[in-house]
Every structure is written in structure tokens, then in C-alpha cells.
Write a protein that binds this DNA or RNA. Sequence first.
DNA 1: AATGAATGAGGTTTCATTCAT
DNA 2: TATGAATGAAACCTCATTCAT
Lengths: 197, 197, 197, 197
Amino acid sequence: MSEQDVRKHLLECAKQEFLAHGFQGASLRRICAGAGVTTGAVYFFFQNKEDMFAQIVANTAAELTNLGQALSMAELEEPDSGPDCDLRLMEFLYRHRDEALLLLERSQGTRYAGFAEELYAQMRWAFTLFFQRYGAGEPDPELIRILVEMRMKGNLELLKGDYTMEQVLELTRLTGVYADGGFRRLTAELRKSNSEG
Amino acid sequence: MSEQDVRKHLLECAKQEFLAHGFQGASLRRICAGAGVTTGAVYFFFQNKEDMFAQIVANTAAELTNLGQALSMAELEEPDSGPDCDLRLMEFLYRHRDEALLLLERSQGTRYAGFAEELYAQMRWAFTLFFQRYGAGEPDPELIRILVEMRMKGNLELLKGDYTMEQVLELTRLTGVYADGGFRRLTAELRKSNSEG
Amino acid sequence: MSEQDVRKHLLECAKQEFLAHGFQGASLRRICAGAGVTTGAVYFFFQNKEDMFAQIVANTAAELTNLGQALSMAELEEPDSGPDCDLRLMEFLYRHRDEALLLLERSQGTRYAGFAEELYAQMRWAFTLFFQRYGAGEPDPELIRILVEMRMKGNLELLKGDYTMEQVLELTRLTGVYADGGFRRLTAELRKSNSEG
Amino acid sequence: MSEQDVRKHLLECAKQEFLAHGFQGASLRRICAGAGVTTGAVYFFFQNKEDMFAQIVANTAAELTNLGQALSMAELEEPDSGPDCDLRLMEFLYRHRDEALLLLERSQGTRYAGFAEELYAQMRWAFTLFFQRYGAGEPDPELIRILVEMRMKGNLELLKGDYTMEQVLELTRLTGVYADGGFRRLTAELRKSNSEG
DNA sequence: AATGAATGAGGTTTCATTCAT
DNA sequence: TATGAATGAAACCTCATTCAT
């Protein structure tokens, strides 16, 4: 094999292993066996197991953080952009499927363990502001938490399926419609409760 | 301590360990250290690590399967019972919080690894029938899948919070309202698409 | 093998390995091979490699610390007891030869790495007081340091030889005579320097 | 950097690593990282790790051997030259501090492991002759061994301190006074013992 | 003259499991 | 009923060394 092939092969095998077993459950031996090298070889390219994980997800993590902030801002300034934001997020996630799933669901034991929580916190913050403007007074933080969690879980499930991007975007549009309808009904209900309670 | 006391203590410690680290990440040594017992003792009460897990969740698994079927049937026969079914499910999950979380999120590596999928399959089936009756024609199975996943993810997040049952049931009611609103908007949208497409 | 034999055998083999290669250079595999067990067995008896080292030297370390303090005090209160103190120290060291050598010369990498320095610091302190009383004014700390180091180095060399205790004590007596003569000449010299300088 | 520059940089880094961790504890990787060179480069300049060590200390070792012989001879032919010899030895050691410490205390695992012993053997031989002439009959070889060991240990401790050469030479003069006084007292004592025993 | 890549053996430690007692 | 002891495999990682280029 020539040049950087081994390194790339190693990263690819590691990615699959991390996806299949999570960071902690992943075995360097299996990764190396898959890449056809001895375990020592890993340590020429990477500092350690976690560094391998980091090198796989680092770029995606940085971009995702930026995108999250950008979308939060966009949504606050232009409330109607919500559906568009959802699509842009999903498009990004789709283009970085494996890395996104690693970051958000398989990173326990790495320095990225808290990444999902950070991202979700940001989303909760944006959603809370949105709720305050268009919703029904001060929203229950726990309700916010659950709605955000549901939303992102749905997105991640979409990633796991074997879809084309068109399918993903269409399904995203539909879950957006669902979320919109849910939000309206919910705020109506809460307004009613408040006026009654 | 009597025989049963040790066994129960062991099961309790194992439950916490499995919750904290998942089945595969759990360490029998830590479990035994926590229970004040040597590792060998485990093999008097249990066949192996997986058997321990199984003995913790078996009852809950069986009951949950039954409850799932019962609720599916109830919902089909009496469509308006949906919200009530949600509450009954959540009440059950709340009463068996730890076991439910083990079953649905910490069972990788055990024979229960596919339990969540089975349960969700059943829910998808029920939801599909519901969709066919009150929705917009033949629903996209992937849309169904995602909606079910979102719903259950929300429920599980509720379980992880530190709530009283009253709080859980109220939040469940609200997510039910949200889901209902979402469903209505979505079917409206789909009907429009169908008539146009 | 019965009872605690393996543990003791393991400790003995470890002691020899630590003496031969120092803590860091010692190999658990060699230790275990010597004791006829697999490496895993170590971790039933000990927490880790360092714990093994610690279990070998802990008692001796504690006693040696106490003895050092006791002798320092004795020497301060009764200056003529110096030679007797030396003998008592050497008798102790001889009775705990291996452990003393491990503590004072092979402990790098363990929590006892600084033990020798602590002991020597105490000796320097005692020697400094002695110097102030019977010597020539305020002694150069570096001179003190070197004299103490020389003294203890001589003692440790005695330990490494293959002597009977009688031989050790006689040689200790002689090095005590040597040290006494050296001290007298040195203080005379320093007094001369001071009066001149 | 020119070829020789790299080689020298490598040797300098290796020296510090060997001083810090001893030969066996030293890591070629750290050395190379420090020198900004890959591990393979070492094997262009040196045969292996031990050859590196050897190239660092070889000159000093040869000179030290010669100096040791020369001083032994000088001291035998001119007994009063002892103090002067001590100073000349220390001056040499001071000028080759690092290499001397490597040779005498950090060479375990190399072909120089026995160097200190050889040097000390020579010193014991010279000291024995000196003892026979000016001492008290046939000296106990073990006593000789310990006195030599103490003396050299003192010298090495001086090297480790952060002194100027003036300070080192002054401290050497003082330890020489100490040794002289000790020697006189000791021979007096031994003569007394012999006439009594 | 030196790199970049890789090996294979060895390092310490943790694991679930076994079994005589 | 449970311990105490031990296994053997596997975990991650570091090592000095090699070699084609």
C-alpha cells in the first residue's frame, strides 16, 4: 500500500468499529486486524485510541458547533426560517453521517462525551426564546428538554436509515410539519391551562 | 445475611452498574465489591453476567411486551383511548424505571439487545393501522419509524429526569397533546400532497 | 501450594526483582514466572505493581521513620550517644536489609521515591544542630549534605556485602571512629579558617 | 542543519535523557522527539541505543581510567600528594560532570555497567597500599571498600549540586580534611586494637 | 542523510469465568 | 453458601529496531 493509505484505511476501520461498538467498546485489535496492521502501527499515526476518535470527528465537531450557532441566530432573527434551518442542519448531518453519529451517540469515554449535551443546550436556549415569543408564557424547561431531545432523536434516526439525501430532506420537511403542528397545539393548550389555572 | 438477601443486594448493585456503564461496560468485580461479596459468589446465584442482566429485567420485559400488545389492541378498538394508553404506558415505565431503561437502552450484548426494536416494531404496526384509518392513505414506513422513535425517546428522557409520577404524567399529557397536534397537521399536509402529486 | 504460600512466594520474587532492576525496571512477567503463576494472579493479592512494592516495604518504612526520629532526639539530648545510635540504626537496617535497600535506593517511581531524602533531611537537621554545638559556628549546608550522604552511603554499602551482623556492627564502629576523627579535624580546620578569614 | 549538528544535538538530548532516566529507562522516542528527528535517524549515526550511550561516555571513560591510574601512581610515589590528587580528580570530574555521572551511576544495562566497580577497585588497591604504609598493618578489605565508596559517593554528590568549580574545589578540600582526620583516628584505633587483640 | 512506516515483543492491567474447598 | 485463588485472554500502550525509499 502506498502513501497515506494505511492511515486512511485505519481511520475507516476505526470509524466502523466505533460506530458498531462505541468508543469504549471498540477494540484496537479488531481495528488493526481489519486494516491488516499490528496494533503498534496505530501509535505511529495516532497518540492513542482517543486521538483516533478525535481525528475522525474533530472537523465535523467544529463545523457542527458553528452551524448550530449560526442557525440559532438565524432562527431568532427570522422566525419563519425555522423549516429552512432544519433542512440546512439535516443536510449537514447527512453529509457527515458517520461522524455526526459518532459525536452524538458513540463518544462516551472521549473528550467529546459532552458534545451532544452542549449542542442540545444551545438548541434548548434557542427553543426557549422561540417559545417565549410565540408560545405561551414561560415554558417548562423540562418540556423544552424533552421536545428538543425528541426532535434530535428523530433526526439521528433518519441518519441511520439507508436513505438518499432527497429522501432525508423530504422526511425532514415532514417531521418539521409535525413539529410545527405539535407546537401550535401545545401552546394553545398551555394558554388555556394558564388562563384556567 | 440470608441467601435471598445476598442475591437481592447483588441484583441491586448489578442494576446500578448496568445503568451506569451498560451491559458490556459493566464490571462484575465492581458489582461484587459493591455487594461485599467475591466474584465467585455470582456464579452460585447466576449462570453468568448475562444471566444477571436477564434476571433483573425478565419480569419487566415480559410485562412490557404484554402491555404493549394490550395497549395496541385497545387503541385499535377504541381510537380515542390513545392519550389514556400513553398514560398507562408511562405509568408502567415509571414504576419500572430502572429495568425499562436497562431493557431499552443498556442491553447491547445481551439477548435483550433487540427488545427495543421488537417493541417499537409493534408500535409501528399499531401506528400504521391508526394512520391508515385516520391519516392520509398509506403512510411512509420510514415516517412511521421516525415518529415512533421520537415518541419513545421522549418517554425515556422523561424517565431519566428526577420527577414524581405526577410530573411525569403531566408531561406525558403535554407531549401527547404535541403529538396529536403534529399528527393532525401532518396528515393534512400529506392529504394535500397526495391530491396535488 | 497451600494457604498464603503463593502470596509470600510472589512477594519474595518481587523483592528480588525490585532489588535487581529497581521498581521501574522490574517486570511483573518475570516476577510471576518466578513464582509460577500467571500475571493476572498478582491482581488478586495486590492492587498493582506499586502496591506490591509498598506491601514489601511499608512496615520497614514506618519503623525506620520512627527510629530515625528517636535516634535524632537521643543524640541531641545525649551527645555522647552518637556511636550507640549508629549501631542501633545499623542493627535495624541489617535486620531489614532488603527492604531498606529497596526503600533507599530502588524506590524511584513509587510513592516512596522521596523517602531517602526525607530521612536524610532529618539526619542533616540533627547533624546541623550537633555541628552548631560542637563544631565551628554555622556549618555550610552543602558540607552537611555531603557528609550525611557519605555516611549513609557507607552504611548501605555495608548492607550490600555478605556479612554477619557482628561484622557489620564492628565495621560500623570503625566507620564511626573514622567519622569522629574526620569531624574533629574538620571543625578545627573551619575554626582556623573563620578566625583567619 | 549539517550532519554533525544533528549528531551533536542527538547526543546532547540523549545525554539529558540518560541522566534523567538511566540507560534502561531512557526512551529513544523521547530523545528523537527532543532532537526533532525520527527514530530511524538514530540508526544512521549509531548502531543502537547502547552505542549512543557509549559514544557519549567513551572519551571520558578512557581519560578517567588513565587519570585514575596516574593519580594512584602519583599518590604511591609521593604520599603527601593525596590532597592534590583529590583536587585533580574532582577538577576532571567537574569538567565532565554529565559523562561522569552517566558512567558511574546511570550505566546499568550497558557495557559500562562495571566501570564504577573497576575504578573503585583501583582506588581500593591504591588505598590499601597507602594503608599498609601509613596505617595499621593489614587493613580489612571491607573497611577499605566502604571508605572508598563513601569518598566517591561524596564526590558524586558534589557533582550533582549546582556549584561553581571554586565551590567544588573548596568543598573537596574540606572533605579531604575530613578524610584525613578520619584516617588518622582510624589507624590509631586499629593500632590500639591490634596491640590489645 | 534521514524519513516514514511498521513490526513484534513486551509492558501493566482488567476481564469473565472456573473450581476446589 | 460462598470464599479464595487462579486462569487465560484480551485490553491499551511503549519499546527498540528495521528497512525501503
